[in-house]
Write a protein that binds this DNA or RNA. Structure first.
Lengths: 375, 375
DNA sequence: CTTGCGAGTGAATCATTAG
DNA sequence: ACTAATGATTCACTCGCAA
């Protein structure tokens, strides 16, 4: 059950694995609240900080109706310096609670994203991508003085330089994208219709509610089921709702009790998806390691057999110990494959084949059979 | 004639209005060279500074070939601090020579653009838009560890807060975009093929040459004929070549004499377009609907070409910005098509044709090709 | 003439584990 | 800490040449 807590009186949250209901909103300043979390406990951060918009005057549409812009107090900063200090503080708080393998996403517009990005770099985060959210239905530029502001920018960064060990569900994303790598520009419509939370008067409850589709792609890209996701500026709880739906644990931080209340109600109404639909995609990269010798031990290949490449230009002899020979040279399937081609490196699993009655069979297919046996 | 000058010995450049051949490259450090220009003399700045890529190791494709990355000395900086100082210096030099009405464009990637943007704001520039160049054919992510880095970011800023009085050819852009406002995300292919300058050995002359279509849209958006355009990091002279073609004056700055030499040769070979195809126009606001300028940007139709109807009863002149002219009247393909027939409305896509060796071709067929390119 | 195929390439912060 | 070994990995487009 989602619960709301005020103040910093509680200790370490009790977060049990496989409890998909462990989602909560902590009401208060995110920097103070994050201090209550243990260090290195978080897998993924998504942050939608105030944009520091600096709207000077009312903006009016051609029919003279007033555009309902962001004029809330939480978006007021006196200067870039003040905004930078604020940004520095919450990013540093995030860094403390992030696991070494964690990554962080921040969304913003040209008003604030350059400051956020520079501070991220100054704090020794490591930018992995900037990702553009292209809005399929942006608000036009009513004055005709600029290009239609049709996108927002997200920065995806790992905690430390080099950025190793982070989660990126490459194969799953690619499979869902007609087998083509997902690019750094994503197209989604704005959050409208039933998804947009409304006040009792029918007005939008929050000025910058993000679409769930955007959060779903973020969470599916960079986390796994049961991971802990946090959102320092939780607002109406979009991140929490999507995290819960996708079987991730969640902690949100929100200063405004009304937003927090709405978020709790919203998250409570979410039913997590069934496990199979969110189960991690087991890929070759993540699968249990099967050494080449296992193919011999299991009888899929006999010592003394020959390996050939797909065009039968090279032939290697299989030794009983799992090494292979090409002429006088002995080595791994990878090293000998590289040697055969005169290359620095080679994936022996895809390079080498065995001859069968039905033609050439990549030894990678035999590895798949061994893996199946092991499960 | 384009000329190259070394050092800072010359005085104020003599730049006569309506002299479309007044394009020059000054060889040397751009900050030192800009100091030789008078204050408040420039209308438009386009800058493609070093990105500070910080590449560590070499990268290989799946076929083990090596990726030809940017390893030039001019992209090496010791630290963010050093890069920031460099950025601060050239932006400040730009600000001095900019007219109060001038605007500046900077292009970059996530490696540097956040620092550039923050420094722009610190220097009291006023960001008008960030514009995303979506690459239709980016290099993939070979290791499958990130999203395909498929875009670069441009920042468009006016010299002073409030940003009043700057040039934005809203009507022409809209007319060239089938009567829809141009958005902040632009799609263009990389600079390849004949447009890409090559060394005598057939290798690319410059590692980061930008496509002319991108520069054309920048210059058409934010300047007028005879305006003075400068480029602090002129490289192979793309900005100068496009500026000359579009009837703008140009001064480029380039440290490397070899690049400067190639740029001069390139710019000398450019013939300015005829005046009618680039003349600014002002119309009442019009409303209608679908991108004609893409056909020009992609090279399917040349500025100055004629469109005709299927029976060759009407003929319209194609402008560089994507609007078309019939007599004195300027507007979108739809509006001008309607005007030609004395009708209220017209679908310009099916009405207008281009003449080819094989006969008349509806421009809608060309649109289909562009669509195919963009997918 | 067109079509097909193989090679090449573009601003890229592009790995993890065992020893 | 480091080195060495293992192993995973590409999209859109252009050009040249063969068929």
């Amino acid at each position: 059950m989602v619960e709301s807590r005020r103040g910093a009186s509680h200790r370490t949250p009790r977060l049990t694995p496989n409890n998909h209901e462990s989602a909560r909103i902590l009401v208060g300043d995110c920097v103070a609240q994050m201090a209550t979390l243990p260090a290195e406990s978080v897998d993924l951060v998504f942050a939608d900080p105030p944009y520091n918009l600096q709207l000077q005057n009312d903006l009016r549409r051609p029919d003279d109706s007033k555009v309902d812009g962001v004029t809330d107090d939480w978006d007021k900063f006196g200067s870039f310096k003040e905004y930078d200090e604020f940004t520095h503080a919450w990013l540093k708080a995030c860094k403390r609670v992030m696991k070494p393998s964690a990554t962080l996403w921040v969304i913003g517009s040209y008003h604030n994203i350059f400051r956020v990005g520079a501070i991220l770099q100054d704090l020794d985060f490591w930018i992995l991508n900037d990702v553009v959210w292209r809005k399929s239905n942006p608000m036009p530029n009513f004055r005709g003085r600029r290009f239609t502001n049709a996108h927002e920018t997200m920065i995806w960064a790992s905690r430390d330089p080099g950025g190793k060990g982070y989660t990126f569900n490459y194969e799953a994303l690619k499979a869902g994208n007609d087998d083509v790598q997902v690019r750094s520009d994503w197209t989604f419509p704005l959050c409208t219709g039933d998804e947009r939370l409304k006040n009792s008067d029918g007005k939008k409850l929050h000025p910058t509610q993000k679409p769930e589709a955007l959060l779903a792609r973020v969470i599916l890209s960079a986390s796994r089921p049961d991971d802990l996701v946090i959102d320092p500026f939780s607002g109406t709880g979009t991140t929490g709702a999507v995290a819960k739906k996708l079987g991730r644990r969640f902690i949100g931080f929100e200063r405004d009790p009304d937003y927090a209340k709405a978020a709790i109600k919203r998250i409570n109404a979410v039913a997590p998806l069934e496990a199979p639909s969110i189960a991690p995609f087991v890929t070759a990269r993540e699968a249990q390691r099967v050494p080449f010798s296992a193919l011999i031990e299991r009888g899929f290949i006999s010592p003394g057999a020959n390996l050939v490449d797909s065009k039968k230009r090279h032939k290697a002899l299989v030794r009983a110990d799992g090494a292979v020979m090409l002429g006088e040279k002995v080595g791994s399937i990878h090293r000998i494959g590289a040697l055969a081609q005169g290359l620095e490196a080679c994936n022996g699993w895809t390079f080498w084949h065995v001859e069968t009655r039905k033609g050439l069979l990549p030894i990678d297919d035999l590895r798949a059979k061994v893996r199946a046996e092991m499960n």
